[in-house]
Design a protein around this nucleic acid. Structure first.
Length: 557
RNA sequence: UGACCCAUAGUGUAAUGGUAACACUACGGUUUUUGGUACCGUCAUUCUAGGUUCGAGUCCUAGUGGGUCAACCA
């Protein structure tokens, strides 16, 4: 996995690593970590962080830890611990050893706090949250010292010990680092490092009633795990001086924090709060709705994990704010799916086609190629007879010249079968086409065509008697605008009401009965689909992404 | 009335002082028993102004624009 010698261009993190290796830092060892808080499901933004951390380590022959950053028991839950591990594995990564927990370091972290107190670098503050906020100042105005800032070491030690022992109520006091209330960096203005929370923890149970803050836990955990490069998103940049301050004053292993810009994708939203709004407002059905940006949603949508990995890679890493166009993701999805998907025929919006000169009662078994991009995928068989279903919009009464499909007097190939000629049509009471009649050329059979007849278009079809009823859920972008959060008003105003359209009367070939959940499929001429877990009496399929449709594009103009 | 970060085609990422590249998008075309796939072609002098240099997208200064920072969240 070491292609570090390749001439491929490097991102800024790789350049830092190259330099570190050159300087013999940490003996050339590379160790990263992915540190989710178990308080929600992973989304495509997390996928980016996962890929960066795991792939970078892989590239340099290092390893990656999975560490649950679980310092706030109020928000965290065991369910998410499991789901996160499941999602990371699905994405295709395996972490070093067992999953780690910041909460497993609570003893060490406590000792670090004591050490800081002894060095005169931390104090117990009884100011209320409001008072502390007031003392803190603003970005443009320096803060003022807390009246409790100059307690003696002994007093601090005693108070902190009693905080731990549970003598005080939640919020009664906190432990703060003693740094600089006038620092231009708000985070250096005596940040809170321990608070009282008499709450049950998913991992440590009721052992603790004081919990460290992120800033006092993250860097030290990195350090304890001997993480060499601690990669995080840009908003933590202001935390870096603090991160380093703790490491220096605690005199522990110097992990290095490096920030990169997180990935935004057009038509997608990642914030947990907003995703929840979509669920609560019944815009989507849940965290695994195929329109969600969650990995569970993407998986159910039928997106291949390798596509997500490649997407993150192609999108690149840098430090400027970015919005990756969803078209890039779709392009990569199609590219991977095109190689993998089994071709099947499904008529989404059926209309009956009668082949008037085909012998009544006769049936044929025709062979259908599973994947033209992959010969070893073999073939399967399809029934053929006098009556078949075709797509409603594959027939037109008054067809324009450029329309290559069926209309009266025109020849068209039925994919894998015969060439037919449109003869007539029947209208129903509403004036809609109810049935189309055609004739076929018996010597034009696919694979043994010696008819010499040309057909401009090729259509998919499903034989009537053997067809099975299926439900097809066509998913599309969740929003009507690229960046719903940058628009006026609420992002929900830009919900795409056509993000899901359903074909309830779709007809599929019988082969669909043999298809597995998660197996990539291509409904020929329509799009890529997967069987959904909702398949019970009736099979249900989700559209992963449509095929490129240059005809639709042309007719729109 | 602050600090820090960022600025290259529509989007994203390269070019590491030596003639701006790749991918996606868009548009045009070739091939095709999927109007798919594949393939070919077209589309920027690097936010602005100064400076350093034989030479600047790259270094310096100022400006402009965007982002971030005031949770006992992570």
């Amino acid at each position: 996995m070491t292609d570090s010698t390749s001439t491929e261009s490097k991102n800024f993190i790789e350049e830092i690593i190259d330099e570190d290796i050159l300087n013999g830092k940490h003996g050339g060892r590379i160790h990263t970590r992915f540190p989710p808080e178990p308080n929600g499901y992973l989304h495509i933004g997390h996928a980016k962080a996962i890929c960066i951390n795991f792939e970078l380590a892989q590239k340099y022959g290092g390893t990656t830890n999975l560490r649950f950053d679980d310092t706030n028991p109020v928000a965290e839950d065991l369910e998410f611990v499991k789901a996160i591990q499941d999602d990371i594995r699905w994405l295709g990564f395996e972490w070093e050893g067992n999953a780690k927990y910041t909460s497993n370091y609570f003893d060490e972290l406590y000792a670090f706090a004591v050490k800081l107190i002894k060095k005169g670098l931390a104090y117990v503050d009884e100011s209320s949250a409001e008072e502390m906020a007031k003392q803190k100042g603003t970005p443009t105005q320096p803060g003022v010292n807390s009246p409790f800032r100059d307690r003696t070491v002994e007093e601090n030690l005693d108070l902190f010990d009693r905080m731990k022992a549970g003598e005080f109520d939640d919020g009664a006091m906190v432990l703060r680092a003693k740094i600089d209330m006038a620092s231009p960096n708000m985070l250096m203005r005596d940040p809170v490092i321990y608070r009282i929370k008499k709450v049950h923890h998913h991992n440590t149970g009721d052992k603790w009633c004081i919990y460290p803050m992120y800033d006092f836990a993250h860097g030290q955990s990195d350090s304890l795990e001997k993480i060499t490069h601690s990669l995080c998103s840009l908003e933590f940049m202001h935390h870096r001086p603090l991160y380093n301050w703790f490491i220096e004053n605690l005199e522990i292993f110097p992990s290095r924090q490096i920030e990169f810009a997180r990935m935004n994708v057009t038509y997608m939203i990642n914030s947990k709060r907003r995703l929840l709004k979509l669920i609560e407002g019944n815009y989507v059905t849940g965290w695994d709705d195929p329109r969600m940006s969650t990995l569970r949603g993407l998986r159910r949508r039928g997106v291949l994990p390798q596509s997500l990995r490649r997407f993150c890679k192609v999108a690149g890493v840098a430090k400027r704010d970015n919005f990756i166009e969803i078209e890039l993701l779709e392009s990569i999805m199609r590219e991977d799916l095109n190689k993998e998907a089994t071709r099947v025929m499904v008529v989404l919006n059926p209309i009956k086609l009668v082949i008037t000169n085909y012998p009544e009662g006769e049936r044929e078994l025709l062979s259908s190629v599973n994947n033209p991009e992959k010969e070893e995928a073999g073939t399967h068989q399809m029934q053929f007879s006098k009556e078949i279903y075709i797509e409603r919009d594959d027939f037109m009464i008054d067809a324009p010249k450029k329309y290559f499909r069926l209309s009266v007097g025109k020849n068209v190939r039925l994919k894998g079968a015969y060439i037919i000629k449109g003869e007539s049509y029947v209208l129903d009471d509403n004036g809609e086409v109810a049935e189309v009649h055609c004739t076929y050329y018996p010597d034009s059979k696919s694979g043994s065509d010696n008819s010499g007849i040309k057909a401009k278009g090729t259509m998919h079809w499903v034989e009537c008697q053997s067809a099975i009823d299926v439900e097809v859920r066509n998913y599309d972008r969740l929003f009507t605008v690229e960046k719903p959060l940058k628009e006026e008003g609420d992002f929900l105003d830009y919900y795409n009401s056509e993000s899901l359209t359903v074909n309830n009367n779709a007809k599929g070939e019988a082969y669909l009965n043999d298809v597995q959940e998660g197996q990539p499929l291509q409904f020929m001429r329509k799009g890529y689909y997967v069987k959904d877990k909702d398949s019970h009496d009736k099979l249900v399929f989700n559209r992963t992404v449509g095929l490129r449709d240059s005809w639709a594009k042309k007719t729109k103009k």
